[in-house]
Deep mutational scan, measured.
Amino acid sequence: DETGKELVLVLYDYQEKSPREVTIKKGDILTLLNSTNKDWWKIEVNDRQGFVPAAYLKKLD
């Protein structure tokens, strides 16, 4: 059920640097789980959840 889920576009590649982070690729469109922290957003990638720098993402309307 995708209702109410926010999507984000990945602006730059990011390689995870800790187990709490996930790797993302430029151009991916992913589900945003939590954006309350202005610097690190929690997203879902391939059934994995983790954090990436918010500056690497853009919210889609």
Rank of each mutant, 00 (worst) to 15 (best):
E2M: 14
W40F: 06
K59Q: 07
Y12M: 15
L7E: 08
K25E: 06
R20Q: 12
E21M: 04
K59P: 08
T31E: 10
K26S: 07
V45C: 11
L57N: 00
K5H: 14
D13H: 05
R20S: 11
T31Q: 13
L57H: 00
R20I: 12
V8K: 00
I43N: 00
D47T: 10
Y56Q: 05
V10E: 00
L30I: 09
K17A: 10
N37C: 09
K17T: 11
E21P: 05
V8F: 05
T23Q: 04
K42W: 11
T3A: 14
V52N: 00
N34Q: 10
Q15T: 15
L30P: 03
I29R: 05
E44D: 07
K42R: 10
W41A: 03
P53V: 02
K59C: 07
A54T: 05
Y12K: 15
L9K: 06
V52S: 03
E6L: 11
D39C: 12
V8Q: 01
V22R: 03
Q15H: 15
D28T: 12
G50D: 01
I43E: 00
K58S: 09
Y12R: 15
D28E: 15
W40V: 03
K17N: 10
D47N: 13
P53H: 02
I24V: 15
E44M: 11
I43M: 01
L33N: 02
Q49M: 09
G50T: 05
E44L: 10
V52M: 01
T31I: 15
L33A: 03
R48E: 06
E2L: 13
G50R: 04
N46D: 15
D47G: 15
Q15W: 14
W40P: 00
K5E: 09
E44T: 07
L9T: 04
D39S: 09
Y12S: 10
Y14Q: 00
K25Y: 12
L57R: 00
K42S: 06
K17Y: 04
S35A: 11
Q49V: 13
N46A: 14
G4D: 11
A55M: 11
N34V: 08
T23R: 04
I24L: 05
Y56T: 10
I24G: 00
Y12H: 15
L32M: 04
L33I: 14
K25D: 03
P19G: 09
V10T: 05
S35N: 07
E21N: 05
P53A: 02
F51E: 04
K17S: 09
W41Y: 05
L11W: 03
D61M: 10
L60W: 07
N37A: 08
K58Q: 12
T36S: 13
D1P: 12
F51I: 07
W40D: 01
P19W: 07
K5S: 10
D1K: 12
E16Y: 05
E16I: 09
K58F: 07
N34S: 12
Y56L: 09
D61Q: 11
L32T: 01
K59D: 03
K26H: 07
A55I: 11
T3M: 13
G27N: 06
L11I: 08
G27V: 01
D28A: 12
Y56V: 14
F51D: 04
W41H: 02
K42D: 02
N46W: 09
V8G: 02
